[in-house]
Design a protein around this nucleic acid. Structure first.
Length: 420
RNA sequence: GUGGCUGUAGCUCAGUUGGUUAGAGCGCCAGGUUGUGGCCCUGGAGGCCGUGGGUUCGAGUCCCAUCAGCCACCCCA
């Protein structure tokens, strides 16, 4: 029995990888325009880092992390998200000593032991963006503009941006208390999960999918009515700036986040045609986190976007399947030797060349060239070799052929490649 | 972690109430003029019917277990 990939871990084949390069390339360009620098951090961190940042009581930390002891007995964890590691690196390398704000992005795999389904894998990949040491609503707005530009660049329509404010340590407790008061009276009509949530994380009851809960939640107090003046002003300013930048969005007072560290601005980009796992990007402000991880008190904001989920929304493009620039169809040992040597020279100039690895009939070689999607084929036999001239066939059009001197083939066919 | 559906050729799938050598389309290979692809025709290769047990004279078809995939719950990107 052949060995299979670990559950929830997927191979990325060349065609799919091309799509990923497109996504990552677009992200790099957009992020660069907003002044973000790349940071690469380890995939393994000390378990404690995530317990402290994400929150002990979250599902992620409680039951979804890949945690193990290494050979020296340290408890390590494959990162379930990127922010904690980036902040650790930020603090450890004392980047906070430099004048801020610091804009960082990273791209890579995350790991969560969940049951796989559409848009959800155990190893998945995120584009992750963080702005450190900036409290203002202007950065919040810029981050959302950047996300919007990225989605546009990727050709994604039918993605909705939802924003909310979660309040801060000053005002959230009030809201929380009001919410618990309200829900407690309806405890009986809540689903089993939500009765548990009521004690652990009452905000989550708000976005429960069960109909009973949706009804019960009808008329519940809204965080939007409980924001303290500071949070209120922050949120209003954010919305004003979003309007100025022309960013379409909706305020969703029930939008909550699964990680404990979020405060104030939170947001989520939701794709209409993705099924149940429809959040394609999500993030928010985490002002107290750097301090909690042992750094200075600095306000920060960031978001993560799921590459797999973005990829599900993007159709293949023909340019990702482009074929060789030239196929060398050689007949006979001498022609094959010449073609072999010529191929290496063309490649040294950056031309994509293919030739048949075996001594096949010309017909077979032509078929091969066609299958590969070669733009042109050079037909080369003993007589052409002797004459120093061979036909080049255009495979993309009607198949016209024209004779070409073999002595400066590369320069004649690919002047751009040869003139630099 | 819970529930439902699915697992037959490289891919997409047929496979009658359990009954001989398991099929199709696409793809692949070769040929259809001696040195020219795409369309067409002919031939060919390729399956421990996910895996392990069981029932039966006989299992791709039935039962159990297991693994994997999909979808949903949950959670989230």
């Amino acid at each position: 029995m052949a060995i299979q990939a670990v559950r929830g871990m997927k191979d990325l084949l060349p065609t799919e990888a091309a799509k990923w390069r497109f996504i990552e390339g677009a992200a790099r360009e957009v992020f660069a325009a907003f002044g973000f620098g790349e940071i690469r951090v380890p995939v393994l961190e000390r378990t404690e880092l995530f317990a402290r940042s994400i929150g002990e009581a979250t599902d992620i930390v409680e039951k979804e992390m890949y945690t193990f002891s290494d050979r020296s007995g340290d408890s390590l964890t494959l990162r379930p998200e990127a922010t904690a590691g980036v902040l650790r690196a930020y603090i450890e390398n004392k980047l906070h000593g430099q004048p801020g704000p610091h804009k960082l992005f990273t791209i890579g795999p995350m790991f969560r032991h969940e049951r796989p389904q559409k848009g959800r894998l155990r190893q998945f990949h995120q584009l992750d963006v963080e702005v450190l040491d900036d409290a203002g609503p202007l950065v919040d707005a810029e981050l959302l503009v950047m996300l919007t530009q990225l989605l546009t660049r990727l050709g994604l329509r039918n993605v909705k941006l939802m924003v909310n404010s979660l309040g801060c340590p000053d005002c959230r407790p009030n809201f929380r208390a009001a919410l618990i008061d309200f829900l407690d009276a309806k405890r009986e009509s809540l689903c089993e999960d939500c009765r548990r949530r009521l004690d652990v994380n009452p905000l989550r009851v708000l976005d429960c999918k069960s109909e009973a809960c949706q009804q019960a939640v009808e008329g519940a107090p809204s965080i939007q009515d409980h924001l303290c003046p500071g949070c209120r002003q922050h949120f209003d300013e954010l919305r004003r700036l979003l309007a100025l930048a022309g960013v379409d969005h909706a305020v969703n007072p029930r939008l909550v986040r699964g990680l404990d560290y979020y405060v104030r601005t939170t947001f989520e980009a939701v794709a209409g045609d993705l099924g149940a796992q429809n959040a394609v990007a999500g993030g928010g402000r985490y002002d107290g986190l750097v301090e909690r991880l042992g750094g200075p008190a600095q306000a920060c904001i960031g978001f993560g976007a799921g590459i797999e989920r973005l990829a599900l929304l993007i159709d293949d493009r023909p340019e990702w399947r482009a074929g060789p620039d030239l196929f060398l169809a050689a007949i006979g040992p001498q022609a094959r030797d010449w073609a072999f040597a010529q191929a290496q020279d063309l490649r040294a100039h950056g031309v994509w060349v293919e030739m048949s690895g075996e001594d096949k009939s010309l017909k077979a070689q032509m078929r091969r060239a066609d299958k590969l999607g070669a733009a042109r084929v050079l037909v080369l036999g003993e007589s052409e070799l002797a004459a120093g001239t061979a036909n080049v066939k255009d495979m993309l059009g009607q198949g016209e052929q024209r004779p070409l001197s073999l002595s400066d083939l590369g320069r004649a066919l690919f002047p751009r490649h040869y003139n630099q």
